[in-house]
Write a protein that binds this DNA or RNA. Structure first.
Length: 480
RNA sequence: CGGGGUGUAGCGCAGUUGGUAGCGCACCGCGUUUGGGACGCGGGGGUCCGCGGUUCGAGUCCGCGCACCCCGACCA
């Protein structure tokens, strides 16, 4: 029993996470510092996320495209705050084919600049708008401190880039995609994030406004899990993205960008996982059901495997992602732990007794042990499994949301605020002044996460730090 | 870049006063097992992070590097 156990989640969350990511076959360390190898099991999870997101992007009128990973270095210099934000973390290529390049190339840290360059060529008329494109790619940012999925030198993501005729359209797009992320998080990943506008110091370099979804992890720290930016006309002006309007007058476009990355996998791990390992939401899990055959002798083996095959086919026919673990060298008990570590939502045990009784044992990953087990007749197994997958999905969302809410509080005063953010989220009146934000960070390590839309509900208050008038509330928390 | 820690088999570790490298898990073979991490027997696998020094002899002592991890700084 005491073999191969994970570090305790409650005692050492960090060690738990690092060990789990590797042991559950999601990812591994690459040979270069700070790089990540996403293993097939982790990549399948990412593919399922991609499908769920891509469906939503298509439904809102976007098309995918592929853009170069090499960008002329001069591009990054065109937008003032963009260059200031990204210069420290650029990977720069100076040699190609053995020769010094005339102009260095940067490995894309994000594609706003090359998109800007391209859109200025593509967009001539109001009839070309809106232009709605998404990219699935990887980007490189030379981070000092790395952690698998949460912050690596290279990571995989999608970046949407749109151009519009008016500010209102751009703002509407920005908020629409924020809502897409929120909906994805809630309904696919069973994570209900807070969402809102970023403070000036936390926003994307080059954006007028950044919105984000912010999720609470199992250690009560915040994770920015997706961002959507209204870029105003900053990139349009830097890259000359102009169109002729109906009155034959030149106008600058209004652009947006929005991204969600493999970091979100970290969010799922840290939201749902427990001491036994991952707990994956059924809608995204690479395998929704793992079937474990159990038998003693050759006769039993034959009948059990036949029964398992039938069950497997039945589930596949009903679009359930299922896998049989028929490895002969491992005992059933070992396989139970193996797949619990990997977070498969449902386990079906099929043994000699089940064959005789025309039944199977179904065990829930989110309720480990006998409490989560039930005997289901073969006739109704598809219905039971389908229902249970929905139930688990709902239970995970409910559990995570309860945890979030029971660790989020509105402070009465600054002392109270300090207590709250030492172990959770605070929703507090804030004057909007960066100096208060900085002081709070220095004194508590908590940063402003986002300012929920209509946070004030028309009321006014006083800043939790400086007592000056405040018209908005912001979430504050220690963050990844 | 500062503080701390660790480098010995795939992973986790032990290695005594310096004497020529071992344990558990994993892996391979055979057999018995299989409803919550099976067992027996046999087997394979090592530039002991690197370089230099001390010594008859270095995993061990000394010096200099390097890498990784943790905590800071930094981080759409």
């Amino acid at each position: 029993m005491s073999k191969n156990t994970l570090p305790s989640r409650s005692e050492d969350f960090n060690a738990w996470y690092n060990t789990l990511v590797v042991r559950a076959d999601l990812a591994d360390y690459g040979p270069a510092r700070g790089t990540m190898i996403v293993k097939p099991y982790g990549w399948t999870l990412w593919e399922n996320m991609q499908q769920a997101l891509d469906k939503r992007f298509k439904a809102t009128g976007h098309l995918n495209a592929g853009f170069p990973m090499f960008i002329p270095k001069s591009f990054i210099d065109r937008e003032t705050s963009h260059v200031e934000g990204f210069s420290p973390e650029l990977a720069v290529v100076t040699i190609g084919g053995g020769k010094q390049l005339e102009e260095p190339l940067i490995v894309r840290p994000t594609s706003e600049t090359i998109i800007g360059h391209t859109y200025s060529k593509w967009i001539k008329s109001y009839r070309d708008l809106p232009l709605l494109i998404n990219l699935w790619n990887s980007v490189v940012r030379w981070e000092l401190r790395t952690k698998l999925f949460l912050r690596t030198l290279e990571f995989w993501w999608q970046e949407g880039h749109t151009a519009h005729a008016t500010y209102d359209e751009a703002e509407q797009e920005t908020l629409q995609m924020l809502e897409v992320y929120r909906d994805f998080a809630r309904n696919e990943a069973a994570i209900d994030p807070f969402f809102g506008r970023k403070s000036d110091s936390e926003k994307f370099p080059g954006a007028d406004v950044t919105y984000s979804i912010e999720a609470m992890m199992g250690d009560k720290k915040a994770l920015q899990a997706g961002t959507s930016h209204n870029l105003g006309q900053n990139f349009a002006k830097a890259f000359d993205i102009q169109y002729l309007d109906k009155k034959n007058e030149m106008q600058y476009c209004w652009t947006t960008s929005w991204g969600l990355s493999t970091r979100f996998i970290g969010a799922m791990i840290m939201t749902h996982g427990d001491d036994y390992g991952l707990i994956l939401p059924p809608r995204l899990a690479p395998f929704q059901v793992i079937i474990i055959p159990i038998y003693r002798d050759a006769d039993q083996k034959a009948s059990v495997l036949e029964s398992v095959d039938n069950l497997n086919r039945l589930l596949i026919d009903n679009d359930i992602r299922v896998k049989i673990d028929d490895r002969e060298e491992l005992t059933p008990g070992h396989k139970f732990h193996y797949w619990e570590l990997r977070g498969v939502p449902l386990r079906i045990e099929v043994g000699p007794k089940d064959v005789v009784n025309k039944s199977v044992v179904v065990a829930r990953r989110d309720i480990v042990g006998k409490l989560g087990k039930q005997v289901v007749s073969t006739d109704s197994v598809v219905k039971s499994v389908s229902n249970l997958l929905v139930e688990i999905q709902e239970a995970l969302l409910k559990r995570a949301t309860n945890f979030r809410d029971s660790n989020t509080h509105e402070p009465d005063d600054y002392k109270h605020f300090q207590e709250i953010v030492s172990e959770g989220f605070a929703l507090a009146w804030w004057c909007g002044d960066a100096s208060c934000e900085i002081a709070i960070k220095n004194e508590t390590k908590a940063t402003s996460r986002c300012i929920p839309v209509s946070s004030s509900e028309g009321n006014k208050g006083t800043c939790i730090y400086c007592d000056k008038d405040a018209i908005e509330k912001a979430y504050f928390a220690k963050a990844y």
